[in-house]
């Protein structure tokens, strides 16, 4: 457990060192929110209607943008190789890295959602729902993303191909994520979507570390 926490701490510290990356990510997230009204038109009611979808698409794209950061630096400087021979199992280490990545790359986005909500004219209930659905759904997004990142870590152009692999797989997250925000779809569906989203997140987070560890082991063979 101590090793586990130490790895989380280390990764967060490393991320905090490159604070510029984090700010770029938030900037990108907000920019999607700026682009959509400009592209579609400033009709407030319409914007409020499509806001949940835009919120999720922005989170989706930003998390894909950050994917490459999970394993690549550690792969290049060899620390990933060292971690394979540590006291705890490699799968657990990857789980720790996922948690650290969530805190350093996704949490800032969630903290930036109020601005997004203002720009898209979301009301309070929609906003709270969207924060909840992002918190519940993004772990699955990262879990799938980690598999893609691990598979492409040895490629120079990996940053381009991992999103293409991951997007179709993470479609369910987008579907349930958006439906768990919308309040006017009918009784019960929103809660059901949130529960299914939580289930997908739990399954993905508990199973994908094994696939990720296998991919990293094969890469370093």
């Amino acid at each position: 457990m101590r090793v586990f926490l130490a790895i989380i701490k280390r990764d967060i510290k490393l991320a905090a060192h490159s604070i510029g990356d984090m700010l770029t990510l938030i900037l990108f997230f907000i920019m999607v929110g700026v682009l959509v009204p400009i592209a579609i038109g400033p009709d407030k009611e319409f914007l409020a209607n499509i806001a949940p979808g835009i919120m999720w698409i922005a989170a989706f794209l930003s998390s894909l943008l950050a994917l490459d950061r999970i394993f690549r630096p550690d792969h290049e400087d060899g620390s990933l190789l060292a971690m394979r021979h540590s006291a705890i199992s490699f799968e657990l280490i990857i789980f720790a890295k996922l948690i650290a990545h969530w805190i350093s790359a996704i949490l800032p986005l969630i903290l930036a959602t109020p601005m997004m909500a203002l720009m898209l004219n979301m009301d309070m209930r929609n906003f709270i729902n969207s924060v909840i659905s992002l918190i519940v759904g993004t772990p699955a997004l990262i879990a799938f993303g980690a598999v893609g990142a691990a598979i492409t870590v040895s490629l120079k152009r990996g940053g381009l191909i991992a999103p293409v692999l991951i997007l179709p797989l993470s479609l369910p997250i987008l579907i349930f994520g958006v439906s768990s925000i919308k309040i006017n779809v009918g009784a019960g569906t929103q809660e059901a979507a949130l529960l299914i989203l939580a289930a997908i997140s739990l399954i993905a987070v508990s199973l994908t570390p094994f696939a990720t560890a296998l991919a990293l082991r094969l890469t370093q063979e």
Partner: peptide, 16 residues
């Protein structure tokens, strides 16, 4: 590596 992502995909297809 392709095999891993193929298998992840095949588990995911019912969910999709």
């Amino acid at each position: 590596l392709v095999a891993i992502i193929t298998l992840v995909g095949v588990i995911n297809i019912p969910i999709i």
